[in-house]
Simulated assay, not measured.
Amino acid sequence: MLNKAVQLMKRLLRKLYDNRAYLVLILVLLIFVLVGYEYFEKYASFFKDPHKIKKWVLSYGKYSFGAFILLQIIQVVIFFIPGEIVQIAGGFIYDTFLGSIVSLIGITLGSLIAYAIASYFGRKFIRKIVSEKHLKFFGKILKLGSVNYVVFLVYLIPGIPKDVVAYICGISDISLSNFLIFSTLGRIPGIFVSAYFGANIHTGNKLSLIIISVVMISLSAIGVFKGEKIIKKLVKKQPSQ
């Protein structure tokens, strides 16, 4: 009887080991569901208010940099959390230059994690967390020309959802090193403008903030409706390799 129980336990452990990838996948999905629930039910307002983010970050004292970087990582990995407000909060807390740097560090680390998750678990997993619409849209865009150049443009043009692209790139032809290089270069202008906006909240210069808002909203609207056409035109103008 004891031998049978031992044999049964061994078979069970062997089956768990053989299916370890699926177990991790289930765990990741469970975390997404739990975090998503917590986010929508309790913390939606937190990610819409730079003042709340500042208060939370600075509550960690000398570890505030780490707390903010962690917040940026979470925002990228859990891509439905709005990223612009967190970037604005970076400038609001640390001023333009330092806010841009800490945001860039957190976003790059978050992008690395998202890419690695997608690369490890593959397309089946990505289909569970990314809409078919986004998969088709970005799958088509990434094939327009040099994948490095296209990734740079996707991250450069406002209005195109950035963070979901990290997961899609993880199952594309772009290497991790090239993805990090070109996505980071593309992100820099947007991060800098958001941090500058956040830094100017302190000044009370409403005219400056209104001008930045109008310009960014206009560019984002163009990116949403004309992003694919813009990328196609720029790719066509790229010198042949």
Rank of each mutant, 00 (worst) to 15 (best):
Y43A: 09
E38D: 13
L27M: 13
I74W: 06
G61D: 07
F47Q: 03
K52T: 12
K42H: 12
L58R: 02
G61A: 13
I88P: 07
Y63L: 15
A67L: 07
L30C: 11
V76E: 08
Y60M: 11
S59V: 08
F32E: 11
Y39M: 08
V28L: 15
G61Y: 02
I73R: 01
F40N: 15
E41N: 15
S45A: 15
G66S: 09
V24R: 04
Q75C: 05
S59K: 09
E84A: 14
F46M: 06
Y37N: 05
Y94V: 10
Q87Y: 06
G83R: 03
L34P: 00
L29Y: 10
Y60K: 10
K62R: 11
F68W: 07
P50N: 01
L71C: 07
I74C: 03
E38Y: 13
Q75M: 07
E38K: 04
S59L: 08
L30F: 13
H51T: 15
V77G: 08
L70D: 02
Y37T: 06
K42V: 01
G36C: 05
V28W: 08
V28E: 09
I93D: 02
F65C: 05
I78G: 00
P82Q: 12
L27Q: 04
F32R: 12
I81R: 02
V57P: 02
I85T: 10
V28H: 08
L25W: 06
V24H: 01
V33T: 09
Y63M: 14
I88T: 05
E41K: 12
L34D: 01
A67M: 13
Y39N: 05
I78L: 12
I74E: 02
V24E: 04
G83F: 03
A44W: 06
S64M: 11
K52I: 13
G90W: 07
H51Y: 14
I31Q: 06
F65G: 06
V24K: 03
L25K: 03
W56E: 06
K48L: 15
E41Y: 10
I69H: 00
V57G: 01
F65K: 04
Q87T: 07
I85P: 01
L30P: 00
G61L: 07
L30H: 04
F32Y: 14
I73A: 04
K54A: 15
K54D: 10
D49P: 02
A67C: 10
V76Y: 07
I69Y: 01
I78D: 03
F40D: 14
I88S: 00
Q87R: 07
K52D: 09
F40R: 14
I53E: 01
E84N: 13
